[in-house]
């Protein structure tokens, strides 16, 4: 058990704090929702009902989609774009998809390579892009569900004020949808750009996200 925890600490730690903070969001979101219900002279709802509501769903999913967009873009952009001095960047002469030898695919695959790295055709293509494919799928899926739950929550608000609801396509044109979307995107892009740029001159001893403390500021693509 100790070995399992040690070897999976990163994945388990973040899964744990994800579940804990999601629970926290449900509790305070529920309290906030009922506060607004009372202000509108409406009946309060139970915690279970709130967790299974579009109000809670859109608040969760709008954040999910932006995180997966961020990482999808980061994984893709770092294939071609470089940042001199950043440990997040590849070395300056390695921009692009690199050679089969560099990537150990086809006849350059080793005994311990995944089977699809040796395969030709679609299997190698799928494995070669699987991280971006899955991250992008999660981004688009959660963004779509943000729109579906966002529309339901938006319409509930509209009906509450005796105003007309909108269809799904109509909702995609509302300021509500784009305000929820862009307020998340901007923070992700700033954070990701900061990681790439701040790590040029700043260090965290022991972190693979940082260069070694003694590495020169202009060393590019050197991970701790």
């Amino acid at each position: 058990v100790r070995r399992v925890l040690r070897e999976n600490g990163l994945g388990l730690f973040f899964l744990g704090i994800f579940l804990a903070t999601l629970l926290g969001q449900a509790l305070v979101g529920h309290a906030d929702f009922n506060h607004r219900q009372r202000a509108h002279h409406d009946e309060p709802v139970s915690l279970g009902r709130y967790v299974l509501s579009s109000d809670f769903g859109v608040d969760v999913l709008e954040n999910w989609q932006s995180e997966y967009l961020q990482f999808t873009l980061y994984v893709l952009a770092t294939v071609w774009l470089l940042q001199r001095g950043s440990p997040e960047s590849k070395e300056l002469d390695r921009a692009g998809r690199e050679s089969d030898a560099d990537q150990r695919v086809g006849r350059h695959a080793t005994k311990s390579s995944p089977r699809w790295a040796r395969a030709a055709g679609w299997r190698r293509a799928v494995l070669s892009n699987s991280l971006v494919l899955v991250m992008a799928t999660i981004w688009l899926g959660s963004w779509a569900v943000q729109s579906v739950t966002g529309r339901a929550a938006y319409n509930a608000e509209q009906f509450d004020h005796q105003e007309a609801g909108v269809g799904w396509l109509g909702y995609l044109g509302t300021a509500d949808f784009w305000n929820r979307t862009l307020q998340n995107w901007q923070s992700e892009f700033l954070a990701v750009g900061s990681m790439a740029v701040l790590s040029i001159y700043l260090r965290q001893r022991g972190s693979p996200e940082s260069k070694p403390v003694g590495a020169p500021h202009d060393a590019t693509g050197v991970e701790g």
Binding site: S54, W64, I138, V145, T149
Partner: peptide, 30 residues
Amino acid sequence: MRAVRLVFVAYLVAIVAGIGAYFVVGLLGL
């Protein structure tokens, strides 16, 4: 590697379950 695979699957299940569940919630207009 069994525990590693389990953590990998746990992440995928959490993500797919979350997206799937709220797709239904939104469709039903809950």
